[in-house]
Design a protein around this nucleic acid. Structure first.
Lengths: 334, 334
DNA sequence: CTCCGGACAACAAACGTTTTAATCGCGACG
DNA sequence: CGTCGCGATTAAAACGTTTGTTGTCCGGAG
């Protein structure tokens, strides 16, 4: 019940509290003999450092915050895996915040991060509002954008070129002889959705087609459920195009389910392409053509940049890294 | 850069720091007029409470730790969603720890929780060692087991009956006329794997079959990749049974992919059943028969129990809740 | 024998909050 | 008119670390 503090350890080991602290934080400062004695006392008493006290006094913690749009999306769990691996290699813990695409939840998560005085924040912003992030920076919290290009040059960001990706997807559909084209997407405030659309339009223009022919179907969420709903809507309206580009794989998988249930054949009747190449894309009823991103790397690199910025604020050079996506062709497209 | 503290707010609002603290924590104790004045000063100065200082002084934080076995498994993201919803309703933040099935990582996560002085811990233990948990309790940290039955009556636990589930699965396979049966599972230390196996054996016995006929294929992980590997192993050995029960859906989806790639037809050549009924189970190549669990509820209820125990340590009555699973029949079984 | 420097360790002052006990006004009551 | 009671506020003492400063002890150089 009574928690054992650094003082108890000090008393038991016959040293001062400061020395115990040194053993914990700068072991090289203390003589081997005392260090060993203190370390064994720590184990004996089962002491664990009070992180809050430490944070309070030191002025910063050993945690970083990670805010993602949808932790239910395997894309983000892969990113999170990369983040966690690097963070724990360097002795940091990760506090995960899921915004579920809601701006309010995102803000609440950022508030929690600020209260916890995290060392830095990794965020895939759910909309375009740099204000909140500047506010964090004003508090001395480093921020790195994940899966989002930098808005300015005084910040780090790691992204994948979504315009290229969208362009690859639609070029592939056009190669397959698609006549009418549809783009199934999430909320327009999500940058990824916009960029992939822009890429899609560029590919149409490049093929001599009018970009305005692209039928846009916008759903409130980017989940499998929403994708299935989109299928039902298209079928009910009778506006189903020859080929569909979905803004992520979850939408595509839901769309696939919806189409097959209605007896629409993929790819014979409709070509379908997703985005992210999540694990399940290759396991679906009709395996899904998709645009692959270096997801795990995204998390790793972003975290490396963040911790470099935290640990060497003087010498740190901000970087904007842009990866390129890959097209993975499978059964769902002609 | 310079962070604004409760003192700055107090000075600006012309009150004492204690009053600001009261506005924050027990607004009813302070007169309306001053409360409003302080609140507006807080907004004006952009003050955010220093969580560490607060935790240090108050002796406990407003966070709970959640330790899961594999955050890449949709089963656990669903659980986490339930946890997060309840926690944030009650003003708690969730620190997520992913053990990846590694005991070492689990221990490191629990250490982080202890250092952060979380109010409580929700854990799906990756093996059977109550020792570590008692250690946490000894530190005044409440612990609730998630997806794991209680070992003793002085603790809360929320689980789903895995013996019943395993039994349902195998009974269904036997109903379908299965001759030889296989059980594809993860590391034997995982309780869920053991219990589902026990259920499977009971179902065989109940059908007048010798439980020892059940071919056990144990993989080091419960992922799609491991499932595919298991398929390759079975095919290479030429020991493929009539029907396969996989300990979770990820294994089953990987197995499905491996079988189809080798030209084995499901369910004509082999019946396949998974466990968890994750979203993707119904979207796979051959939609997957599975055993459904009330996943999101699991997270919700566990968190409610935990927070009840934290907030009313006196009156709290420990509960062991056991949900029942459901069989969901789809295309992958005869 | 003194003096100097290096290596360790002790001391004490923070860090920003919460909380208990004490204080202050002020109207009501005897 | 003194005092009591009550609500609202303040003052001050923690909470467990970290860290810059001060101190002590030692061996070796002068």
């Amino acid at each position: 019940m009574t928690t054992v503090s650094i003082k108890d350890v000090a008393a038991r080991a016959g040293v001062s509290p400061g020395t115990v602290s040194n053993v914990l934080n700068r072991p090289e400062k203390v003589a081997d003999s005392t260090r060993i004695r203190v370390e064994s006392t720590i184990r004996e008493l089962g002491f664990v450092r009070h992180g809050s006290a430490s944070t309070l006094r030191a002025g910063h913690s050993r945690t970083v915050g990670l805010s993602v749009i949808d932790i239910g999306n395997p894309f983000f769990t892969d990113v999170a895996a990369g983040v966690e691996d690097v963070a724990s290699e360097r002795g940091y813990a990760v506090i995960l915040g899921n915004s579920s695409g809601s701006r309010m939840k995102e803000e609440r998560n950022l508030l929690v991060f600020a209260e916890q005085r995290v060392r830095g924040v990794l965020i895939t912003p759910s909309d375009e509002d740099p204000g909140r992030l500047d506010q964090l920076r004003g508090r001395g919290i480093c921020v790195v954008l994940v899966d989002h290009p930098a808005e300015r040059s005084d910040q780090c960001a790691v992204a994948v070129n979504d315009v290229t990706g969208g362009s690859m997807a639609v070029a592939h559909l056009l190669d397959g002889g698609a006549g009418s084209l549809g783009y199934v997407t999430g909320p327009p405030v999500i940058r990824q959705c916009q960029d992939r659309k822009r890429g899609a339009e560029q590919a149409m223009a490049a093929a001599g087609r009018d970009p305005r022919e692209l039928l846009e179907v916008s759903m409130p969420a980017m989940t499998a459920k929403a994708g299935q709903q989109a299928a039902e809507n298209l079928l009910a309206e009778g506006t189903l195009p020859d080929a569909l580009f979905c803004a992520n794989d979850l939408l595509a998988l839901g769309m696939l389910r919806g189409l097959l249930q209605a007896g629409v054949r993929v790819p014979q009747d409709v070509s379908l392409i997703g985005y992210d190449d999540i694990d399940f894309a290759s396991a679906s009823t009709v395996s899904l053509t998709s645009v692959r991103q270096p997801t795990y790397q995204l998390g790793r690199v972003a975290t490396e940049l963040l911790l470099d910025e935290c640990d060497n604020p003087g010498t740190h050079a901000h970087q904007q890294i842009m990866f390129q996506p890959d097209l993975v062709v499978r059964e769902s497209t002609r």
